[in-house]
């Protein structure tokens, strides 16, 4: 896969030539590694408590909160029975996910306010430590990917 085929490059909507694409080409390895990270957090071999469809549903939700409609649509394609999570009023309660969805929303959007109680709350609900780490990696990766995409769009806007 070349950098022009990565989610980060295509969702940013960049033309395949021009000054921004030239800059991205100098960091082609980083874009390929970013794609590998997307595979690892969205479609891992060992899912733990979170299936590929649930991960995609949560990813689409976080992308929506970041006001990135194109990225939300990208993840929505894999969300299956969890497509409802892109409705930001959805609590996840009907699927037994209220605690998980509340935690994801807070890590994504009120990062600074996270405290030990938030982790203790997940543990009290029976979420295993390994699954807490998996959930954090998913949300954390999306924070990174959505910000690279929005930055690339700003660069492209300035180049036009």
């Amino acid at each position: 896969m070349t950098y022009t085929d990565t989610t980060t490059f295509t969702i940013a909507g960049l033309p395949e030539s021009g000054s921004v694409a030239d800059a991205v080409a100098t960091r082609a390895k980083i874009f390929a590694m970013t794609q590998a990270a997307e595979e690892a957090v969205l479609r891992p071999q060992d899912c733990g408590a979170f299936s590929h469809t649930l991960r995609a549903g949560l990813a689409a939700r976080v992308a929506q909160q970041a006001k990135d409609e194109a990225l939300a649509q990208h993840y929505l394609k894999g969300a299956g029975e969890y497509a409802n999570l892109t409705d930001l009023a959805e609590t996840g309660a009907g699927q037994g996910l209220r605690t998980v969805v509340t935690f994801v929303d807070k890590v994504a959007n009120q990062t600074r306010d996270i405290s030990a109680e938030d982790i203790a709350g997940l543990q009290a609900e029976g979420v295993a430590d390994a699954d807490i780490v998996r959930l954090c990696e998913l949300v954390a990766f999306l924070a990174y990917q959505s910000r690279v995409i929005s930055g690339l769009r700003l660069m492209q806007g300035a180049a036009e």
Partner: peptide
């Protein structure tokens, strides 16, 4: 944005 959501959260 990624690293902070691991270090500060976990």
């Amino acid at each position: 944005g990624w690293a902070n959501r691991l270090m500060h959260v976990l």
